[in-house]
Structures are given as structure tokens and as C-alpha cells.
Design a protein around this nucleic acid. Structure first.
Lengths: 235, 235
DNA sequence: GAGTGGTCTAGACCACCGC
DNA sequence: CGGTGGTCTAGACCACTCA
């Protein structure tokens, strides 16, 4: 943990515990320098993180004002694994591993995962919330990068295995959200009620060194889908 | 335009014109310092922008590698007005202003727009692409902040009016994406084919000084909806 | 070992805000 | 006017990568 990350965390805690409330101004950069015994640059890095993540807005000549982070509540924004997601939710959540196979990459998989050769893990999981099966995840993992994965990891958390046991750092992802018709298979494994459509989240995930390690298709029953985003206007 | 923004733009141009291709490394920070005659900090600010916007990935000990920005293609990511959106799309696009009214804020509007008193612009617009009416936008604008808006502005671009004529800076927004049943009114004004659902994008938009000026509900026919997102893992 | 990016420091000038 | 954040500079040390 670097210095500016520590300062970020401390300030974030104070925002979350309402020591700094919505509309309040944080102490000025000058005061924070004294408080944390650091240079202005280090303080500014910490504030930059708060800014990027939507916790504060900086106003020239005035200071850093705390935004209403309750309104965000980040359910699917950023990159988060299903396990991280469920910790911020209510209700009983269960994962059923429908498929766990390792196959040599065919042409389509080689293209999707940018790999020349090797094996691919194919994992299908149904997620149920309060007994209702509402999400179907299909993951394709590059076996050259991710090794030693077991069905138990798929049951628990693949991201946890990658980060804590393989010590790889997940860095960024690209997502695309569309709406698609439910297939026969989707209707068999999910509780679709009368719905014919599914919200489809395609996602490509990358490590710190920009290698693509995973491609995921996550299908959500429309009434249970929610995506929240915080965006700053470019430049 | 500040120095680091200029450097950002120049590097971005070189990425977009393929002078730097996907997988290439940018010149090192040291070389860029010499090229642009600036300090390392200024170079790093420019690279930070490229990083945030998903154009490069920095790898320690190696350098800044160019990512495949074609795969992004940013259709609805970030904050963009419909006018900005349509410039990046093919097809004939038309806007029909269904409603343009100014009303005193009632309790619900006061709450949504965080205002104590004053008027609210209510604007409903149908967007048609290649002759198909597929998007219904309903905007609520704080009349204390946004003044002098006309039906013609709604026909053209409200964001353009706010930024270029009122000289206000749009800074950030919060979006929520859900799927909802189409109402009778939705079915009347949109070409819904056999669909009963709409993708609903609720959006709150803020100025530079963190004041909320607009609340929008944008409903999209499911088959024509697409949202693309680039996200970095927090911390 | 030379080069890379990551972090931290100290100092400077500016435009903007509010009194 | 003093205080705020925005920009820019120059220098330092570190861990990491690669040959």
C-alpha cells in the first residue's frame, strides 16, 4: 500500500462513515499536506482517486466537495466478480456449476482469446438469487495463462483464485451490454417466467501486462438486471 | 488547451492514424520529455488520460503499450449527447420533439433535481434511425440553471446550447440501466414491433461545480440498444 | 546494468473564488 | 486580498524487465 493509496482509503472511510457528509468540503490540499505530512502531489494523487471513483468533485477556488455516493451504490459498475457483487447485496445467493471442461482452442476461441494454441477452460454457471435462477454466466479462460483451475474454484470465485493463488493482477476490462432473445438452453436452465429476452453482458478481461485472459458472456433475466455507471466527460 | 492536453491529443492522433499500432510501445516517458520539451510530470498527465480512456496500458519495466481501441468504438460509454452519438453512426437520424413545456417544479421534480423552487423544462423527444422510431428521451432541466432554452434547441442539441451558448461546463453524470415494460404511450410513439420491453437509461448530469442541472429517462427498443464500457479495476 | 514506469518531494506561477 | 485548486518544473529513489 503506497502513501497516496493509504490517504485515499482514510479519506474514503471518512466519507463512508459520514464524517465528511454530502455537500461538505474536504480539508484543502494545503491542510491535508500538513495532516498527512506529505507533499501536495501525493495528496493530489489521493484526491484524484476519489474524483475518478465519483466520491468528490473539485471546484476551483473553493475546494473538494463530497458527492452523494449513496446514489451510486455501484452494483455492476467497474470490474467486479460475482462474489464481490453478492457481498453488497441482500438475499440468498447460490452458484451452480453447469459445465466445467477443458478443450483445445478451436479457431473461434483462438480468435476471441487472442491465443495461438493451447487449452481453454469453458465454464457455465447459473446464479440464483433467493431461489430464482436469473443469471447464466459462460466463461472462456486462456489455459496458457490460467492454470490449475478446478471445479471447486468455479464454485467459489475464479477471480479470487487468479488474484490470490496465481498472484496475477486483473487490471481492466471491456464490456458490451445488449439485449438478445433467450435460447432454448437458456430457458431450460434459468427461471425465465414469461420473458423471451435476456440482457447480455459480453466482457473481455485483461491482466496488468495487457494480456487477455478471459472472455465472458453473462445473461441476465431482464427484470433483475441493473447497471450503474459513473462517468466523467472526456478531457 | 493546456500543455498536457495538447500532448494527449497529439499522441491520440498518432494512435488513431495507426502511426502507433495496437501492440506497439509508445516512446518512453524520457523520450517524450525530450520530444515535447516538458517535464516528466506533464508527460505522465498526458499518458494518464490515454490510460483512463482505454487507449494504452502501462507495463512497469517495459513501457506504454497501445491497446486495440477499435474494439471499444465507444457508442454510449461516458457522457455523450445524442448529437455526438449520431456523428459516429451510420444511417439517417431524425429527432421529433413531442413535448416542450415549462412548468413550476412540483414536489417530485424538486426532489429529483435538488431544487427549492423555480421552473423545470420538460422535453420529450423521439429519435428515429433509418425511419424507425426506436428511442424515446424525456428530459427534465433545472430552469434556474438552464435559461432561454427553446424548442429549436431541443430539435438541435441541448448540450451544444448549454456548453457553447451558456458557457457552462458539463462535468460528470450518473447512469442507471434497467429493463422495463413499455407503457401504452411508449407503444404509441415508438415503432415497437412485437416488443413489450424497453431498455431504460436514467441519467443525472452535473456541471463543473457539482450542481445537478438535468435528469433524463431514455428508453430504447431492446434490439437496437448497445452500451460499451471500459473499466479499470479500482485501486 | 541500463532502461522502464511508480512514487515522493519542494517549489513556482496561474486563474478563480469569496470576502 | 488570501485561499483554493490547476499546471508545470526538476530532482530523487525504488522495483521491475530484459538482454
Amino acid at each position: 500500500m503506497t502513501k497516496y493509496q493509504r490517504i485515499y482509503q482514510e479519506l474514503l472511510d471518512k466519507i463512508k462513515t459520514k464524517e465528511y457528509k454530502t455537500g461538505d468540503y474536504l480539508p484543502s490540499e494545503n491542510e491535508l499536506m500538513k495532516t498527512y505530512g506529505s507533499s501536495r502531489d501525493t495528496i493530489r494523487k489521493a484526491l484524484q482517486l476519489l474524483l475518478q471513483n465519483g466520491y468528490i468533485q473539485k471546484v476551483v477556488g473553493k475546494g473538494s466537495v463530497v458527492l452523494d455516493s449513496e446514489r451510486i451504490a455501484f452494483p455492476v459498475s467497474g470490474i467486479s466478480s460475482f462474489k464481490e457483487l453478492k457481498e453488497s447485496m441482500d438475499g440468498t445467493i447460490e452458484t451452480i456449476v453447469e459445465e466445467f471442461t477443458v478443450v483445445p482452442a478451436d479457431d473461434k476461441l483462438k480468435d476471441e482469446l487472442h491465443m495461438d494454441d493451447g487449452n481453454v477452460y469453458i465454464i457455465e454457471r447459473v446464479r440464483s438469487i433467493n431461489g430464482e435462477k436469473i443469471i447464466l454466466d459462460k466463461d472462456y479462460l486462456n489455459g496458457n495463462i490460467i492454470q490449475g483451475l478446478t471445479k471447486q474454484h468455479a464454485q467459489d470465485s475464479i477471480y479470487e483464485y487468479i488474484e490470490n493463488e496465481l498472484n496475477l493482477n486483473i487490471s481492466f476490462s471491456r464490456k458490451e451490454i445488449t439485449v438478445i432473445p433467450a435460447t432454448k438452453h437458456d430457458k431450460e436452465v434459468l427461471d425465465m417466467l414469461d420473458y423471451d429476452l435476456l440482457v447480455c453482458v459480453k466482457s473481455y478481461s485483461y491482466l496488468e501486462d495487457a494480456t487477455l485472459f478471459e472472455y465472458t458472456i453473462s445473461k441476465h433475466r431482464p427484470d433483475k438486471f441493473r447497471f450503474v455507471d459513473f462517468a466523467r466527460r472526456s478531457q
